[in-house]
Amino acid sequence: MDTRLLVEDFSAWYGQTQAVKNVTLPVYASQVTAIIGPSGCGKSTFIRCLNRLHEVIPGTRTRGRVLLDGQNIYDDKVDPAEIRRRVGMVFQKPNPFPTMSIFDNVAAGLRVHGLPPGTTAEEVVEKSLKMVGLWDEVADRLQDSGVSLSGGQQQRLCIARALAVEPEVLLMDEPCSALDPVSTLKIEELIKGLKEKYTIVIVTHNMHQAARVADYTAFFLNGQLIEYGVTSDIFTNPRDQRTEDYITGRFG
């Protein structure tokens, strides 16, 4: 199986606090990889290092390498903006741009990167909205504000916005934590459908969600990677006692 992202001996800090400690982990192409662990275990920080978003917070630093298709994204010559185009991200709370219409929200990335040759903005927006199953719901009101949608729709709009710039990897930082069960289900279905085209890394505090959507699962504790493997193995046959404690709910 192809390795899309290879994290090598990676650490990350906020000021003096080390949030990620010497993590090494391969992320396989066209698979869903879930990162689980108790709050404060560094899983969100870790995922934010995969598109170099951690460094936009003042006082932070990192050490180690992250190879995207063999190229170290932390290399001095690499432009973080270009990495962020190739590695898209969806956040905990839906964050559409409130002053933009639904259409403009999806097209926001295109406005900075330009259109792929031979396409129009209309085509790309329609394709992206169809991929997230939102097209039928919003086709007749594309000019309405992005924040006029429900929470679940907003989150799918944000996914469409991320997909419109054609990333290779999609990072999802607890994308359902602010949503109701029905919207959560829709997003989970969506994730399963998207993995053919995209490599997906999802952070979740919900173990069941990881079990439902992920092919691979990594368990983090106190900034360290404790265990990583095929999801079913992790949940049915953990090798580490701490992993077992966590998934059986005897933990924190």
Binding site: D79, A81, E82, H113, G114, P116
Partner: peptide, 11 residues
């Protein structure tokens, strides 16, 4: 996605 565009954006 074109080199010239990226140059312009960075500038």
């Amino acid at each position: 996605m074109i080199a010239g565009r990226d140059q312009r954006r960075k500038f």
